[in-house]
């Protein structure tokens, strides 16, 4: 029974890897989502085309395959990545493609009235986006961003493909060493749930903050 402490430590180490992947992957996804989402509605056809290509590609292929390519094929072109970097990149680019559509949808959901008011007070395109459109689009994005972050958390377990010891990987290790399935998998079940709850909770707080004052508008 004394061994459980050691096994639990193993799983918690894996949990930390999962947290790191989730945080860094989400950060990358967020950046990529804004770049590609804005790219989708650019005035320049070639930027729209580029953004669409990225989004379609990463939504249309599985993250498993994407990770494989990033970790095993990309190095052949000279871009050597650590497993953690490859994992973050695959997760970020994959979820960022979904996020881009959210960004685009939210921006387009801001009424045309608002764009026209901006023209009437002579804001530049950038000022319109920065001061009027984005602040109204952001609250529309947040609920779906929360879901995306949870999807990303759940997808982190693919990194065992490239021998990263995340939480699921460690649970497998413990299982094969102890022969017990129940203990490791109940543990990671609770840990995954705790992490996704933390994301939901954080997102709801953020939502309340950015929607302050907007109530009664829509």
């Amino acid at each position: 029974m004394g061994d459980w402490a050691g096994y639990l430590t193993l799983i918690l180490q894996g949990a930390w890897v999962t947290v790191e992947l989730t945080l860094m992957g989400s950060a990358l996804a967020l950046v990529v989502a804004f770049i590609a989402g804005l790219g989708r509605i650019s005035r320049h056809a070639w930027i729209r085309w580029l953004a669409t290509g990225y989004i379609e590609f990463f939504r249309g292929t599985s993250i498993f395959v994407q990770l494989f390519w990033i970790y095993f094929v990309l190095p052949m072109t000279g871009a050597e990545l650590t497993p953690m970097q490859a994992g973050v990149m695959a997760l970020g680019l994959n979820v960022g493609a979904y996020g881009a559509e959210v960004v685009r949808g939210a921006i387009l959901a801001v009424p045309r009235d608002q764009h026209e008011a901006c023209v009437a007070v002579n804001l530049t395109r950038f000022q319109r986006m920065r001061h009027v459109i984005m602040p109204q689009a952001l609250p529309l994005m947040l609920p779906t961003f929360g879901n995306n972050a949870i999807e990303l958390l759940k997808a982190t377990s693919v990194v065992s493909l490239i021998s990263l010891s995340d939480m699921t990987f460690q649970a497998q290790v413990v299982r094969s060493q102890t022969g017990s399935t129940l203990m490791p998998f109940v543990t990671i079940l609770l840990l995954y749930f705790a992490m996704s709850s933390a994301i939901s909770f954080g997102m709801r707080r953020l939502e309340r903050r950015v929607t302050r004052g907007l109530d009664g508008v829509r």
Binding site: D113, Q114, E116, A117, A120, V132, P135, Q136, G213, L214, V217
Partner: peptide, 9 residues
């Protein structure tokens, strides 16, 4: 404008 178009935020 007819519908004011104030910035709600």
């Amino acid at each position: 404008f007819q519908h004011f178009n104030l910035f709600p935020h």
